[in-house]
Write a protein that binds this DNA or RNA. Structure first.
Lengths: 142, 142
DNA sequence: GTATTTTTGAAAACGATTTTCATTGTTGGA
DNA sequence: TCCAACAATGAAAATCGTTTTCAAAAATAC
């Protein structure tokens, strides 16, 4: 249940090793409340750990996604963002093109309609992606 | 109203020129029923027009998007797909991870709920993206 | 037609990400 | 505890999709 442990068990299961770098990256990742791009994340990490390599961060974030404690996102700016997956409900995003703010939301009614649509087309859904792009209250001038 | 004319007017308005290549690419694009990646599209084009350049195709597809007769899509495989925008309703996608099939759908109820969610967060939506990933009937073995 | 300006295609550049490779670190036994 | 085996690291090079550069060619304006 604790996310750190989930990742450690994942490593063991896969015959991978627990390293100082992976622990550092895991800590930073779990304490990250925003949606930084991989580069932003790397730069943040580097302030405290100047000797950590770019490639290691990329590799480790991919491991997080494989393990299931992270999910890769892509909001159209050509950069991947990894987001900590919670045990809670799936959520979607509101993205402000003015200030770049990223808000999360969830709506069961939308999820149910999605399932219905998929069923109607004979699909079995494994995951979905819903993003609303526009202007937040501030940027829209309200 | 005719899409070809829309693009020609767009060119004139922008002080751009109508060229043989742009006409060829426009024709191919308008006759394309599927969702090819830019590379697939280029390869298809090339069969009939071996002398056309990669860069020209990229540039022209971007012009289509700017003009409004096309919309860029990205289904997570790192490649951009341009899709002909119809004058009809906006639509979303079902993507089969088995065979790569891409189905289109639309659902007003989902659209309405999206607007509601945005409003609740003070957002003004400009566009949205909804993609359902999973297995189509065939690939799911039904 | 001719001048002006844009477009083209090939190749180089680009930015994000991945891979390579020699070195270092980790781990599960002797 | 030490060692052998193997995985992980970091720096640099490679890769992939896309964009830009640049000289030559084509399109429009005059």
């Amino acid at each position: 249940m604790p996310r750190k442990q989930l990742f450690r068990e994942f490593l063991t299961r896969k015959g991978l090793k627990s390293t100082r770098q992976r622990e550092i990256i895991l800590d930073e990742f779990l304490h990250c409340a925003t949606h930084p791009s991989t580069e932003e994340f790397y730069l943040g990490l580097r302030e405290k750990n100047p000797r950590i390599g770019y490639a290691t961060v990329y590799r480790t974030l991919k491991l997080f996604a494989e393990c299931g404690i992270a999910a890769a996102r892509n909001f159209g700016d050509g950069q991947t963002r990894y987001e900590s997956t919670t045990t809670e409900e799936h959520h979607d995003h509101l993205i402000c093109r003015g200030c770049g703010a990223i808000l999360e939301f969830e709506d069961d009614r939308i999820e149910r309609l999605q399932s219905e649509v998929a069923r109607k087309h004979g699909f079995v859904i494994e995951k979905h992606r819903l993003e609303l792009y526009g202007l937040c209250g501030n940027c829209a001038g309200n």
